[in-house]
Each structure stands twice: as structure tokens, then as C-alpha cells.
Design a protein around this nucleic acid. Structure first.
Lengths: 201, 201, 201, 201
DNA sequence: TATGAATGAGGCTTCATTCAT
DNA sequence: GATGAATGAAGCCTCATTCAT
């Protein structure tokens, strides 16, 4: 009995994963908007109807992917935060870890900024997840501001937004350098722009 | 005869303008994706079919709008460039002028980064216009780098890209401050990040 | 120019009529619920999309049909009302005229009572038209009550509802007699049930 | 062994009942058409597939419910029939008992007149059960006609049909009075319309 | 026998594009 | 050249029914 259930559950998980993978593949290949549920399920080698046993809509799939991404990012950052380094150094290191994770999932980024436009169901918009992104960096920044390592004449949110936009821009860059290098250099500028050279005692 | 032709030409221009204006209005109101050709032509008080005498697709309209915008931006910047100020000061002033123009046409911005996704005809993507944007800033930056006013350890393109992304991010910001103020503060950081404090002789 | 418009308008009317006719045919044949927009347009020999140039939904088509029916009924009744006869006689004669009209359009009747259940768009429910039906009879009845020709111990609305239900029931009757005869006999009973034998002076 | 079978039989009955109850609940709550097999089985806390071990379709469930209802109505009427009262009085009393039962199960009524429409399997239509309803009243009426208490110029079936339609109409009435009061008043009219005042010897 | 996930037909609707006038 | 109705592909989603476990 329990075996039976396990088998089923396992199959379910497997299918769910199959759909997610197919979705990622299609999103990467055709972009979110040009991907239809039918596309995804064809790739997944499953019936269209099956999709709706797992997700309510294409948007929901995306949200899932984004959520996972954020979870991963956050985890990495938590680990970094334990090290005894300056906020500036922490930000730099976090940025690079984040870049690494996003590098593998760049297709979600265009959506963070544009999906809102497409949907009649704003409550499902991935944009709602984006704050999570900024909050993480926001904490580090405001801590740095408190400790006098980061300038205080610019609102924390705004700085946070700049970090965020670096990923966006890098994801779409047509420059020849890699995503990660792109991020690295921009982060360098940004950190130079916000760091206080003579930290207050 | 020539007069008749002129009249016709004029009419054509007039219609074209009507369509462009209607498109701007609708894009602002409903967003690019939620605007249909029919929407535009209704607003323009013209037949749907007429649209296709002037443009090949909605995307093409957008491209036109973006082109015009860039022309306007460039003009402003050319004027600034004649003043005898440092590259940093020039960039700052150009950024604010640009912000002013974009502030009125924010609807094009989401498209600069995401429209590529929507279209089966990538050759028509507005993305192809985006370089124009960066080139303008690129010139100022590289001039500043030559004159030792701007750091040289970061490729010009990359810095240029950062300026670009500031507009993107500001256009979508949910922070309470205005678009222009948002841009102003970020430009401040960015300039601090790229300026060489002790210009080389 | 005006001719051109006329031609178009004519074509439009013709198509509209074509759709309505096809709808009636299909509704009769398969019932409202089992009829799809696609069914209708196939019968009408027109593209599916065309349907939406004329009507917003299947429900709207139905409403149109019902509206027309009511208009016809009302017209007949107005004519009768001018005759100098007792309310009872007037009701009888109106009922028969109504029966005649409905006889040709019985397929709408099931819908008057059941369509409400099917629709997520209650505001479009044909039920909202039904009142019109009862109001017409209501006026005659209440006038008869005032004049002492019809019993006053039963609310006008309720009597009105009974008339209405006679059509419903007759439309679905499996008895061998004709729709009109069915109505005639029931009306007879109903009138006997509501008539005051000795009209008050 | 026989015990085991009994247990199994019992379980089967229990499940069947569970499904029927769940169906009633859902039909009441969402209407017949908006209720899916899945809805019912969820409410019944059973697997969807199980449904098909007991019933062939949603329609079949409805038929069962209607059958039960009729059985209940008939039982009440049989009891009444034993009293020594006139056919008119008997009808009145039966009508009110019937009203009471139906009041609790109004959801079946729309279906008596419209369900036929929903199904591709007309042989399963609940309409086929409706006669049962009329037969019961038919007996009383024809007996009354024989005894000279009810007019003979109208076919028994037709009068019977009128009784039937009273329930239909009352179930859907939008008037403020209660279902039972609605029925009571209409029955009053109907009885006045069919009663012979001076019963023939 | 119970289960419930998979299935795909089928319904609705939108809209870019064509084409007869 | 302007018009706007016709078109049908394409997307979304629901749900009765099947079938492997």
C-alpha cells in the first residue's frame, strides 16, 4: 500500500520535473511569451491536459522556477554572510555567487521586468517575487550603511535596485564578454560608487 | 499635377502621423502587448486595413517610435557636447536631459529589453535600435577615458550599458521617488564609480 | 459611395441573419447547450471568427432571438388591448396569439427557465428578459382585478407566472395534442380559476 | 463467506449512498451543469474512478435521485389516498405534501425540463421519469372526474401537466413568497378552475 | 475493487492579415 | 488608397473517461 503510494508519488514528482524541465527548455529556446502550454507538453512528451494537473497556468510554472532560483540564491548568500568581511566585500562575493546561479537560468530575467505587462492575472506576476531579490541585497547594504562602509546619501532601496538591474542588463548584453564577467565589472563600478573610502570608526 | 501629388503626399504623412500618435497613446494606456492593431486604428479613426499600407506590423510601429525618440535624445546631447565641461559633467547633464525625454515615453523601455521575445521576426526587433542609444553615451565615455577623466579599466561598452540599464530600471521601479529623481541618484553613484578623482595630466 | 456602404451594410445584415438562422436551426436540432459557436458557423457556412464580429457569445445570440420574440408578442397584444372586451376575453385572445408566435420558436422556452444555470455571465442570462413577458400579462391581469373581473385574493404576479408557465409546460409536453391546443385548454382552466363570475358593479 | 459477501455488499451500498449524497450536495450548491464528476467524488471523499463503478454518468446519478424523490412523493400520496375526502381536497393535500418534499430537492426541477438538452444519451434523460410524476396525480384526477368532482372537458393528462408545471414555475419564481406558499396559491387557482361546483349525482 | 493521473477532444476567444469593394 | 468584414490559426482551459497500479 505504502509502496503503491510511493510509486505514484514518485511518478508524479517525475512528471512534474519533466514538465518543469521541458518548460525551462522551451522558455530558453523560444522565450516565455512564445511558448505555449502545448509546446511545453509536447517537449515533455505528455498530454496537454496533464499540464493542468500540475500547474494552473504557464505563469505558475514560471513562478516556480523563479522561486527555486531565489531560494538557491538566498542560500548561497546566507552562507557568505557568516564570514567576517566588510559589507563591500560581502556584496562583491554575493554578487558573484548570484551571477553564477543566474547564469544558468538567465531566461527568467527578462520576465522579472516584463511579465507584468502580459498577464491579466497580476497577482501571479513573477514581479511579486522580485522584491525578495532586492530585500536580500537590501539587508547587506543597509548594514553596510550603518557601519559607515557604504554611503548614506542614497536610499538603500535605490542601491539595491542598481544591483538588481546589473543582472538584467548583463543577461541581455550583446557584448562579447561572458555574463559573469559582465556582472563582475559592473559590480566593481557600483561598489566603487557606493563605498566610503574612510570608514567611520 | 505636382500640387496634387503634394496633397497626396501630405495626406499620407498625416495618416502616418495619426497612426503613430494613436499607437503611442494605446501603448501607454494598455502596454505594447495588450494593444492590437485594431486598437490603434480605432484610436486613429482609420480603417484597420489602412494600417498595413503604412506599417508591416505592430513591431514596426514601435521601431519607428523608438527611432524618433533616439533622434530627439541625440539632438539634445549634441547641444550639450558643445559646452566646455568635463566628461563627467557632460554625462550627468546628458543623462538628465535623456531622462526628461524618456520620462514622457517610458512605454518604449520595457520593449527595449523584452520585445525581442515577442516577435517571430527578430530582424524587426527594436533591440536592434538599442545600440544607437549606447553609441551616443559611448562616445562621451570614451572621450572621457582618453582625457583621463574616466577610468580605463572597464570597457567603454560596459559603462555605456550601465547608463542604459539605469533608465530601464528606473522605468520599472516601484520606489516612491520619481523617475527623474531615480535616474539622478543612480547616475550620481555611477559617475562616482567611474570618475577618476585625480585626472592625469 | 453611399451605394458602397449600402452594399456592405446589406451584406452585413445578410450575414447577421445567416448566423441567427443557423443558430435557430442548431438550437432546435441539438439544444442550446449542445450547440457550439463552431456548430453555428459551420451551418452558416462562415468562419468561426466571423461569429465574434456579430455577437459576443452564444448567449447573446439567444438574447437576440428572445428579444425579437417578445417584441412580436407585445405588438400583437397591444393590438388586442384596443378592443373593447373583458379582461378575461382579452387574456384568452392574447394567450392564443402568443401561443401562435411561440409555436414557431419553442426552442427558446427551455432556455427561459434553465439558461441561468449555465452561464458565468448572469447579466447576459435570458432570464432577464423573462420579466418583460410577465409584465405584459401582469398589466392586463391587474386591470382586470381593478375592474372586478379577476379575483383579488391572489397576487397579480403569481397569476402572471401561471400564464408564463403554461407556455413552458406546453412546449415540453409529450401529449399528443398540439402546442396551441395544449395552451388553449390550460388557459381555459386558468381563466376559470381566476374569473369572478359575478363581476362587481 | 456469506458474511464476507455481505460486508462487501454493505460497503458497496455505503459507497453508492455516499456518492448520491455528495451529488445532491453539489447539485444544490453549484447546479447540475456546473458540477463535474470530479466535484462529486471529491465531496464524497472517493476516487474519481470509483464513480464509474457505480454510475455511468452524471445524468444517471440524477435519474436515481429523481427516482427516489418520486418514490417518496408516491408514498405520501398513497397515505393520503386512504382518507375519505373529495378528490379536490385530496389533490390539495397531496400537492402540499409534494411541495414539502420538493422544497428540499428543488435542484432536480430545472432538470426535469431541461436536462434532456444536456445529454448525448437521451435514453438516460431524466425526462423519462417525469411521467411517473404525472401518473400519480393523473390517478387522483381521473378518479375525481369519474366521480363528477372534476371537470371532464379537459383531458386528465393535461390537468396533470398543469400540476406538474406549478412546481417547475414555483421552483424558479423570483417572487418574494416562499416556494410552498407559491405552490399553495397556484394550486388554489387550479383547483378552482377544475372543480365542478355542483357535483353531479 | 478503488484509485487518481493521463489523456485529448472540444469549447471559447483573440487577432494579425487578407481582399473585395 | 482606404476600408472593414471575413478568416482561421492558435492559445487557453475543462472534464468525461480510461487504465495501470
Amino acid at each position: 500500500m505504502s509502496k503503491k503510494i510511493n510509486l505514484r508519488e514518485q511518478k508524479k514528482l517525475e512528471y512534474r520535473q519533466k514538465i518543469l524541465s521541458a518548460a525551462v527548455h522551451e522558455f530558453k529556446e523560444r522565450g516565455f511569451l512564445n511558448t505555449s502550454v502545448s509546446n511545453i507538453m509536447q517537449k515533455a512528451d505528455l498530454g496537454v491536459g496533464t499540464f493542468y494537473n500540475y500547474f494552473g497556468s504557464k505563469e505558475e510554472v514560471l513562478m516556480n522556477l523563479v522561486k527555486n532560483l531565489f531560494a538557491e540564491v538566498e542560500e548561497k548568500i546566507q552562507a557568505q554572510a557568516k564570514l567576517k568581511i566588510s559589507s563591500i566585500e560581502l556584496l562583491e562575493s554575493c554578487c558573484m555567487h548570484t551571477a553564477e546561479i543566474i547564469d544558468e537560468n538567465k531566461f527568467v530575467l527578462p520576465l522579472l521586468s516584463s511579465a507584468a505587462e502580459h498577464s491579466d492575472k497580476p497577482e501571479q506576476s513573477p514581479k511579486n517575487l522580485s522584491p525578495g531579490f532586492k530585500e536580500i541585497f537590501g539587508k547587506i547594504i543597509s548594514f553596510g550603511q550603518e557601519r559607515g562602509q557604504i554611503r548614506r546619501d542614497i536610499p538603500t532601496d535605490l542601491i539595491s535596485e542598481m544591483f538588481h538591474s546589473i543582472y538584467q542588463a548583463a543577461a541581455f548584453s550583446k557584448l562579447k564578454i561572458s555574463f559573469k564577467e559582465n556582472v563582475r565589472l559592473k559590480v566593481k563600478i557600483l561598489l566603487d560608487g557606493i563605498a566610503l573610502k574612510n570608514p567611520q570608526a
